[in-house]
């Protein structure tokens, strides 16, 4: 499994496909937080929202890096389940690598006002980490669902990605009557800003994980049909 993940990550980096989402993420964070001077919890909630489409796009790029026939060779060598678990783990690791960057950038560009009490820094970082970690599996699931391995035509992949991101933002609005249709990225941002209660924390975590699980199950289902 480790060699499979390493091979995928190597291909992703050596083909320079890792650069566009990284650059886009950095630009978005800098523009968003530059001299904003907001509270850490609010800044991180917004970061997670901005990073969600970038993480999904990054996942699609990573999974699309490997030629189809190479993916099939790995299926023959290691088994179908190991192949797609390896792909998802590789995408998760690459996404995870962006989280510390997203947590650090607001501080570097003056996006976060230095709190009066030192304990608020730790709280802000913890809530920020929670917000990003909830966005990650949903973004990986959406990106996987849009990857070439899951869809029959490249256009379908792009449409899934665009509609998924748009749906996340539209259905995630506070006035939405069907917020459960989308991952709770906006809801987590709102909760982060206000400071999440224990119930909110549990409900939003459960919602995000359930949504991610369903999307990944959809990906697995599509992969069962396609080689």
């Amino acid at each position: 499994m480790i060699s499979m993940i390493r091979m995928r990550l190597g291909g992703f980096v050596w083909t320079a496909r890792a650069v566009p989402p990284l650059a886009a993420g950095l630009v978005a964070l800098v523009v968003l937080h530059g001299r904003a001077g907001a509270e850490a919890t609010e800044a991180y909630g917004v970061s997670a929202v901005v990073l969600f489409p970038i993480l999904a796009w990054q996942t699609k790029l990573l999974l699309d890096t490997e030629p189809d026939t190479q993916r099939r060779l790995v299926v023959v060598a290691a088994g179908r389940r190991a192949e797609f678990v390896g792909g998802l783990l590789a995408a998760g690791l690459v996404g995870l690598a962006l989280v510390p960057v997203a947590l650090a950038v607001p501080w570097l560009v003056g996006g976060v006002a230095v709190p009066d009490r030192p304990g608020e820094v730790g709280t802000g970082l913890a809530i920020g980490l929670w917000a990003h970690l909830l966005a990650l599996p949903a973004a990986v699931g959406l990106g996987a669902l849009a990857s070439r391995a899951a869809v029959t035509r490249p256009l379908y992949g792009v449409m899934i990605l665009i509609c998924g991101v748009a749906g996340t933002f539209v259905f995630g609005l506070e006035e939405s009557v069907v917020p459960w249709l989308a991952p709770p990225v906006l809801a987590v941002a709102r909760a982060s800003t206000a400071g999440p209660t224990g119930t909110e924390f549990a409900l939003l975590t459960g919602h995000a994980l359930l949504w991610s699980a369903l999307v990944i199950a959809g990906y697995v289902g599509l992969r069962q049909r396609r080689a």
Partner: peptide, 17 residues
């Protein structure tokens, strides 16, 4: 159409196997 060198590719595939 892959960026791996021959040796690195075969080593990775051997490891996967």
């Amino acid at each position: 159409d892959q960026p791996h060198t021959v040796h690195r590719y075969l080593t990775a595939m051997g490891s996967i196997r």
